[in-house]
Design a protein around this nucleic acid. Sequence first.
DNA 1: TCCTATTTATGATTTATATCATGTTTTTCC
DNA 2: GGAAAAACATGATATAAATCATAAATAGGA
Lengths: 143, 143
Amino acid sequence: MISKTAKYAIKAVIYLGLHSSESHKILTRDLYEKIQVSESYLAKILQELSRHNIISSAKGRNGGFYLTRDNGDHTLMDIVRVLDGGQYVDSCVLGISQCNAEHPCALHDKVGKGKTEFNRVLEETRVSELIADLQEGDAYFPL
Amino acid sequence: MISKTAKYAIKAVIYLGLHSSESHKILTRDLYEKIQVSESYLAKILQELSRHNIISSAKGRNGGFYLTRDNGDHTLMDIVRVLDGGQYVDSCVLGISQCNAEHPCALHDKVGKGKTEFNRVLEETRVSELIADLQEGDAYFPL
DNA sequence: TCCTATTTATGATTTATATCATGTTTTTCC
DNA sequence: GGAAAAACATGATATAAATCATAAATAGGA
């Protein structure tokens, strides 16, 4: 559905949203265990996110990664696209070319709703909203 | 979400359900183009399905693959499990170990519904039902 | 009984994903 | 201005998924 890499990325972004700011940056080495991924792999992922402006970073001493208000404007789908390259979002569950929303195939019609719903949520949910939900205690995020 | 291999398999099973019977078996070479996969790869998939009794087969001259009434009793999830090994059905969308249905994580709570729905449909839909829908013209399946 | 058409079994190859490792650049502090 | 601390860039390796190729087993028909 979405790659492991994208999952790591989403977790990391949420964590940064909850625990970082421009005045309190976070280092890869202090984050990788929580995400349950190796330090060097997380580093690569964070760099990719930074390059696409999903998160912010500062080099050198006192550097690190953090989330600004602007960063929070991205959707979860943006994150997935940066890491999975947008290829997973194909219209038909069975990969039938003549199948689309107006003319859904047998399975699409049944199963497709679940997938469409999944995509829709990814597309509509902004990082900032998710963070807000978590801060208000409405949601659970055990990292 | 589900592998390409599983998609090929589902397509093939549906096709067999619509166009084959014990007295009218179908050869790999007459099917692979419709599924849009190579002949040898489809052969491998059909063999795997046959071994797990999802479809039926006969060797030798006048042999081929076909679907019996008994075969139709399997669910779509059965097909997926045979080819993907059941590993994709992990509980949490983000792979968080402490997250489950009773205690859903932030994303699980939002996105999870889509995935759960998807799984449910796979689990509940029997091959025979899907075939019936198609034969009655209620569904679309352009192969 | 022998030949041919078919599934079946097995292994090799390619491609994609995930992961690791190492060197380079930038920034801040002393 | 030099040294240390950090992100950044790049390439190598490992693992898994997808695909291909070939030989063996089986069954039917002449």
